[in-house]
C-alpha cells in the first residue's frame, strides 16, 4: 500500500496552490469581479523560482536556511496527514508531533522575520507569536478530544478509521465543538481575514506577510508554497479527522476512488467556507483577536470536558 500513501502525499502537495487559487476565485466571485484563474498561484510560484533573489547585507546564514526548514517541515507534515486513505507515509508520532511540526514552522518563520533588522519583520514576528500563544491550547485540546473520543490514542490513521467506523454515534457535542474550534484555529493559523489579511500591503496591519517581507526569488517561492501547503494541510486535517466518514481503510481501488472523490468534495467545501468567511467579515483590530481566540479555546475546553461529564 506504499503506492497509495505516496500518491496521497503527492496529491496533497500538488493540490495546495490549487486550493489557494480556488479560495481567491470564490472570493472574487463573491465580490462579483472576475478574479485571477485558479491556476494563477502555480504561475506565480514558477515565476518566482526563475527570478534571482536580493539578500540584505545585515542578513546571516540563517536567512537562507529558514525557507528550506519551512518547506521541509510542511512536506513532512504532508507525508503524515491522511487525505483519502488511513495509512500514512510517515506514521512516526501522532497528532502531538503534528502540532510540534507547526511550532517548528512558526519558529523558523519568526527567526526569518527578525533577520535583516527591519521594523516590519520584528512587528510581524511578535504579533505572530502572540497569536500562536493563544492558538496552541485550543489546538492541543482539540487533539486531546479526538484522542479521547476515538479512544485510539493520537495516531491520525487510527483516529479517522475509528471515528469513521463509529458512524453517526461519533457526532456528539464533543466532535462538533472540537470541529468549530479547529475551524477558528485554521483561520487564525493561516492568517485569514478575521485575524490577518493575507492580501494586504499595508505593513502596519500585516502579521504573516510582514515576516516574509525580506524574502525574494526562490526563497519567497518556498515560503509562499509552504504557507499554501499549510493551509491545505489544515483543511485536509479538518476533513479527514473531524468528518472522516467515507475514508477508505482497506486498499481496494473502488473504496479508494470513492474516498478520493469524497475527500476532494470535503476540501472544496472547507475552502468555500473559508472564502465565505473572508468576504463576509472584515479584519479585526489586533487586540480584539485574543477575544476570538479565547472563544476557540473555550469551545475546545468544553468539548473535552463534555466527554467526561456526559
Amino acid at each position: 500500500m506504499i503506492a497509495v500513501e505516496i500518491l496521497q502525499t503527492v496529491l496533497l502537495v500538488a493540490v495546495a496552490p490549487l486550493m489557494a487559487g480556488f479560495v481567491s476565485k470564490v472570493k472574487a466571485g463573491m465580490q462579483n469581479r472576475p478574479g485571477s484563474s485558479i491556476l494563477q498561484p502555480y504561475r506565480d510560484l514558477a515565476k518566482l523560482c526563475r527570478k534571482d533573489r536580493a539578500v540584505s547585507r545585515s542578513c546571516s546564514w540563517l536567512f537562507r536556511l529558514v525557507p528550506v526548514v519551512c518547506m521541509a517541515s510542511m512536506l513532512i507534515l504532508a507525508a503524515m496527514t491522511p487525505f483519502f486513505y488511513t495509512g500514512v507515509l510517515a506514521p512516526y508520532g501522532g497528532l502531538v508531533t503534528v502540532v510540534y511540526m507547526f511550532t517548528m514552522y512558526r519558529f523558523a518563520m519568526v527567526l526569518g522575520g527578525l533577520e535583516g533588522g527591519s521594523t516590519f519583520g520584528g512587528m510581524g514576528s511578535s504579533r505572530e507569536m502572540m497569536m500562536s500563544v493563544l492558538i496552541e491550547p485550543s489546538l492541543l485540546l482539540g487533539i486531546a478530544t479526538l484522542a479521547v473520543l476515538s479512544g485510539a490514542g493520537t495516531d491520525m490513521g487510527d483516529i479517522s478509521e475509528t471515528i469513521a467506523s463509529m458512524g453517526i454515534a461519533a457526532v456528539g457535542p464533543a466532535l462538533i465543538l472540537a470541529a468549530c474550534s479547529f475551524m477558528i484555529t485554521l483561520l487564525a493559523e493561516n492568517a485569514r481575514i478575521p485575524f490577518d489579511n493575507p492580501t494586504t500591503h499595508l505593513e502596519l496591519t500585516m502579521v504573516h506577510e510582514a515576516m516574509i517581507l525580506e524574502y525574494s526569488g526562490r526563497d519567497l517561492a518556498m515560503m509562499e508554497y509552504s504557507s499554501m501547503l499549510r493551509m491545505n494541510l489544515f483543511m485536509a486535517l479538518l476533513g479527514s479527522l473531524f468528518l472522516p466518514w467515507g475514508i477508505s481503510s482497506t486498499g481496494e481501488p473502488v473504496s479508494l476512488l470513492v474516498s478520493l472523490a469524497l475527500a476532494f468534495v470535503k476540501l472544496l467545501t472547507v475552502a468555500f467556507v473559508v472564502a465565505l468567511v473572508e468576504s463576509v467579515l472584515c479584519k479585526s483590530r489586533l487586540f480584539k483577536v485574543p477575544n476570538l481566540l479565547t472563544v476557540s479555546f473555550a469551545l475546545s475546553l468544553i468539548a473535552m470536558i463534555s466527554l467526561y461529564i456526559l
Partner: peptide, 27 residues
C-alpha cells in the same frame, strides 16, 4: 493542565525566539 502546557510551551518558545533573535539576528 493540557491547556496550561500549551500556553506555557508557546510563551517559552516566544521568549527563546526573542532571546536568539535579539542576540544573533538583525543589526
Amino acid at each position: 493542565l493540557i491547556a496550561m502546557m500549551g500556553v506555557c510551551g508557546m510563551i517559552v518558545a516566544t521568549s527563546y525566539a526573542r532571546l536568539f533573535g535579539f542576540m544573533f539576528l538583525g543589526r
